[in-house]
Design a protein around this nucleic acid. Structure first.
Length: 679
RNA sequence: GCUGGCUUAGCUCAAUUGGCAGAGCAGCUGACUUGUAAUCAGCAGGUUGUGGGUUCGACUCCCAUGGCCAGCUCCA
């Protein structure tokens, strides 16, 4: 049938595969395939007939290949050998291909309903795909019609055909698609171009794709948003339509249920429900007010952080919340961030609320002549910072205009950088461990040479050196990390600890940065052992990051059930009837003396009602006090997960609470109490 | 800042095509004295975010604006 030369590949299952060397080419004027090439498309590529995909069902059949970690679809000629994994729909590696093909189906459907639409890009993403479009107005009420059109298209079981075309042919074929034309021109005349065709819908695309759209099942359009063309805010904003896509409807449903479940723990909802913070339109956007409960949580974390920092050799400072603009001009922040600083004009003087602490610590350092014998100097401050974030950026406690950073700056010699960097890392890992935060990843945030001089200080040698330094340390101590170009600070690379919120949105929780630029700008020096002036290195670091963001993460991590030592109200006391009020009040006093935060509810309401009324506060322990408890000097302890333990001796309960408080224990030590109760 | 959605009592939500703003919870008053997630009855609660406009008449339609939510962009 073909004159294909055979390229032999080793497969994990020992199957030999052959591939045709010749590819179908389109008729350049119409975009149609020449008839003699038709048999080369689709599913004729495997020599083992039992493995051939069929249009009717791809279940258990090969749909794509992975050769040396690169994905190929079955329509693409293979030009090099290697270890091959044959992928079926069941393989995890296939899912992005499936989603990408589904994106094309959606585009096809939209084209039939909105013929004037102009397509940009439509990639697979986690959990689904999106397509960016122009010249179209959509709203959620269009979703059903689009989904229905997609179903209709899928029923046709179109093959997904692949074509290689020249630069000129591509320009002609996509002449009505301005965004595709821009992509083609950017790829240039020398890059091989391909497009895919299903039914009468064609799309410029590198692939890979499923050989047929028949198996596409579990999808749901879910979100409409604006997105800048090529991710640049100066470009036109396009319409982005997001969809979820899974192999089948049950997995789609499972995912939707899971997400709904997760979103119930949004700190922005339950943080307010727990009465940790509020917002007030008169105060302003991005300026949350912590209630007394939120303040208790913050103060407790702060105590932990500052205690550990002192142990780690940090010197705590208190520096001004504003400074003359000259300070930020010296640091370079003015050039980079002037627009997002709060600037205050006072007579002839220009001030700004501080957006970071570093120059203040540098001023302290520079207030004396420093010897190498003093280094490293480790400054730390629980620092209030102000950043005028864009109005669309604010989010609960995660992104705000005023926040409190567990900030710190280590000024050290070049030789001390590795040790100090490692200590910073260990300190923040210690905090993450105590708080039992596990959903984080390390990101080595590097500069982008393309933006040298504008976004980043133009000193390639120093960038290379510090990034290597960081990479070496991380590798040496076996921390796995991803590298991200263009995510550095303007003065140096960062190790960012990234986390995600309940919506899966990624944010930086903690950061350690090596700074080679600001010591120069602030003319920081020390005298070395040879009586020579040297320039120190600065490490910027955060212990727990910003308290507001950390509280948000904790609320989501614990679903509001903060550990005993962090819970705003730790214990609530409920006398069963009002003759026990005095006794309950006595207990309250006793617990307060022990240092716990206690609520005593003596309202003349039913016990059930009073218990119900504190459920939203998620108090770890409710103590029900009846005549029996008073007579035996015991407690009936109800935990917030609704377990009831009767007959707990008061002193044992107090001891257990102290234990949890002192050791920052995560679990309410119900088992300990129980043991005491039954012994 | 941009795109889309939303904005009604303290909270959660109703109110047909433009035709008298309504309920539950919370609050207050009274009765009940309570054993582990809502005792009963009554009362009160609003310039429908704000400012304009269209209309005999606007919660409803239009314009502007504040705020909230998701996404994009940004994040020292």
């Amino acid at each position: 049938m073909t004159s294909a030369k055979t390229i032999s590949l080793t497969t994990t299952t020992g199957i030999t595969l052959t591939y045709p060397s010749k590819q179908p080419t389109p008729n350049s004027t119409t975009g149609e395939i020449a008839p003699e090439h038709k048999q080369l498309t689709g599913n004729k590529l495997l020599t083992n007939p039992s493995l051939e995909p069929t249009l009717a069902s791809l279940k258990g059949r090969p749909v794509a290949l992975m050769i040396e970690q690169t994905l190929y679809d079955l329509m693409t000629p293979i030009t090099s050998g290697g270890t091959v994994k044959i992928l079926t729909l069941a393989d995890a590696e296939t899912l992005p291909i499936y989603r990408h093909t589904a994106a094309h189906v959606m585009a096809y459907a939209i084209r039939t309903l909105f013929p004037d639409v102009k397509f940009a890009i439509g990639p697979a993403i986690d959990n689904g795909f999106y397509y960016d479009m122009d010249n179209i107005t959509l709203n959620a009420s269009d979703f059903k019609a689009i989904e229905k059109a997609m179903q209709t298209i899928i029923k046709e079981q179109f093959e997904n055909k692949r074509f290689e075309i020249s630069y000129k042919e591509a320009l002609a074929l996509f002449k009505d698609e301005p965004y595709k034309i821009e992509l083609i021109k950017d790829l240039g005349e020398t890059t091989p171009l391909t497009y895919y065709k299903m039914g009468d819908f064609i799309d410029l695309c590198r692939g890979p794709h499923l050989p047929t759209i028949a198996p596409i099942k579990g999808f749901k359009l879910n979100k409409l948003a604006g997105a800048y063309w090529r991710g640049k805010a100066t470009n036109k904003m396009l319409t982005r339509l997001y969809a979820l896509a899974f192999l089948d409807k049950p997995s789609l449903k499972t995912y939707i249920t899971k997400v709904a479940e997760q979103e119930r723990y949004d700190h922005n909802k339950i943080g307010r429900e727990m009465d940790l913070f509020i917002n007030d339109a008169l105060v302003g956007q991005g300026l949350p007010l912590l209630t007394h409960k939120g303040t208790l949580v913050k103060q407790r974390i702060q105590t932990l952080v500052e205690t550990e920092e002192r142990r780690a050799g940090y010197l705590h400072t208190l520096t001004p919340h504003l400074a003359k603009s000259d300070l930020y001009k010296t640091s370079g922040h003015w050039d980079h961030y002037k627009d997002s600083m709060f600037i205050i004009q006072s007579g002839d003087d220009e001030f700004a609320l501080r957006p970071m602490t570093c120059p203040f610590h540098f001023a302290l350092y520079n207030s004396q002549r420093r010897s190498y014998k003093e280094l490293p100097i480790r400054y730390a401050e629980t620092s209030t910072l102000f950043r005028n974030e864009a109005s669309g950026e604010m989010h609960g406690l995660i992104r705000v205009r005023q926040f409190t950073l567990s900030d710190g700056h280590i000024i050290c010699t070049n030789d001390q950088v590795e040790q100090e960097f490692k200590s910073c890392l260990e300190l923040l890992l210690y905090f993450l461990k105590i708080l039992d935060i596990k959903n984080y990843t390390f990101r080595l945030s590097k500069w982008d040479a393309a933006e040298a001089g504008s976004k980043f200080i133009d000193n390639p040698a120093m960038w290379e050196q510090t990034e290597d330094q960081m990479r070496t340390i991380l590798t040496k101590y076996n921390y796995s990390f991803v590298e991200a170009v263009g995510e550095a600070a303007f003065y140096g690379p960062k190790l960012d600890v990234q986390t995600t919120n309940v919506y899966g949105k990624e944010d930086t929780l903690l950061t350690i940065q090596i700074d080679f630029a600001l010591p120069e700008r602030f003319k920081m020096t020390y005298i070395d052992e040879n009586d020579k002036k040297q320039q120190p290195v600065v490490i910027h670091r955060a212990s727990i990051g910003c308290y507001e963001r950390t509280i948000a993460l904790l609320v989501e991590r614990y679903h509001g059930n903060l550990p005993f030592w962090l819970a705003p109200d730790q214990i609530a006391i409920f006398p069963v009837h009002n003759k026990l009020t005095a006794y309950a009040k006595g207990l309250e006093t006793q617990f307060i003396k022990e240092g716990f935060q206690v609520l005593c509810d003596t309202r003349e309401e039913s016990l059930g009602k009073r218990i119900r009324s504190v459920q939203k506060s998620r108090i770890p322990y409710l103590l029900i006090i009846g005549d029996k408890e008073q007579a035996t000097e015991t407690l009936s302890v109800r935990t917030r997960d609704n377990k009831v333990l009767d007959g707990i001796a008061i002193k044992d309960f107090i001891a257990a609470c102290h234990e949890m408080q002192r050791n920052h224990l995560l679990e309410c030590q119900v088992s300990t109490l129980k043991k005491t109760a039954t012994s």
